[in-house]
Design a binder for these strands. Structure first.
Lengths: 134, 134
DNA sequence: TGAGTATATGAGAATATGATCATATAGAAA
DNA sequence: TTTCTATATGATCATATTCTCATATACTCA
C-alpha cells in the first residue's frame, strides 16, 4: 500500500498534477494547457493517480473534474503536508501554479481552450508584471 | 528532487530497509538475514537509497554499516514521521522489526551469520512467546 | 605473502513504465 | 438522426527497473 502510494508519486508529471489539484478542481483539458502534456498522456497519469486512490473524478457532462481525494487526504495528512511544503520551494511547481492563476484571472473557460489554444497559452504564460522583477 | 525521493521509496524492499534503519544501524549481512534478500540484490537497493541521499554508509573494517542520513532526516521531517506512522500499522514491517529484535536479544553477531545461517534464521524467526497468542 | 570474508558491480534476462498514435466511448449540440 | 467534443484506452516502442550470476574490490587474518 505504502509502496503503491510512492509509485504513484514517483513521476514528475504526476507530482505536477497533484500540485495543481492542491489549489482546486480541474478538468483534463485545463490540466493539459497548464502542464503542456498531450491529452492521452495526461489521461493515463490521471488514471494512475485515481487507481492509487490519491485523486477522484467527478463527471460533469462531457467534462471530468479531477480533485484530491478527501479520504486519501485524511488518511495521509503528514504526507500531504510534506508535499505542499516541498512544492512551495520548487520553481517548476510554482510556475505551474502561476499559469493556473493567470488562467483563472483571465476568466477563460474550459470550452475556449480547444478553439484558441495558442492564445490561451500566451495568456497563461505571461510573466507576473510586478513579481520577480529580476 | 522530490521525484527522486519518491522513486527511491517506491519499492517494498527499500521501504523494509528503511524501516529497519529507523531502529538502528546494520551491516549488509545483517539486513540480508532480516529481509531474506540476496547479498547482491540488497547491496543494489542500499546503493540506490544511498544515491538518493536517504541513507549513509560508514565503513568499519570489512563491514559497512548503513544508517538513516541525519541530513536527509532533518530536511524531511514530515516524510519520516509519515513513514514511521504508516510502517507501525503494517504487518510486513512489524515482522521485520521482530526478527531484528530476536537477533539482538540473542546476542548474535555479524560474523556468526555466514557460518550458521540456518541456525540464525531459526532463532530470528521464532514467534514471540506471549505476543499474538492467536 | 596467500586465503578467506564482506561488499560492490558488470552483464544479461524478465518485467514494468512512460510516451505516442490511432481509435473507442460517451455526452452535447444541431 | 448526425456531428462534434472531452476523455479513455488498445497497441506499440523505447527506456527503466529489478533480480540473478559471476566476478571484482577491499579488508582481515594467518
Amino acid at each position: 500500500m505504502l509502496e503503491q502510494t510512492f509509485k504513484a508519486l514517483a513521476d514528475e508529471n504526476r507530482l505536477r498534477i497533484i500540485n495543481l489539484l492542491f489549489h482546486g478542481e480541474f478538468c483534463v483539458c485545463e490540466l493539459e494547457v497548464f502542464l503542456g502534456l498531450s491529452q492521452s498522456n495526461l489521461s493515463r497519469h490521471l488514471g494512475k493517480l485515481k487507481t492509487s486512490g490519491i485523486i477522484t473524478a467527478e463527471k460533469d457532462g462531457q467534462w471530468v473534474h479531477y480533485m484530491i481525494s478527501e479520504v486519501f487526504k485524511s488518511e495521509n495528512v503528514l504526507l500531504f503536508e510534506y508535499l505542499q511544503k516541498k512544492m512551495r520551494k520548487d520553481q517548476v511547481f510554482e510556475k505551474d501554479i502561476e499559469r493556473m492563476q493567470n488562467y483563472k484571472k483571465s476568466k477563460l473557460s474550459c470550452s475556449v481552450i480547444r478553439e484558441n489554444k495558442e492564445q490561451v497559452l500566451e495568456i497563461i504564460n505571461q510573466e507576473e508584471s510586478h513579481a520577480k522583477g529580476k
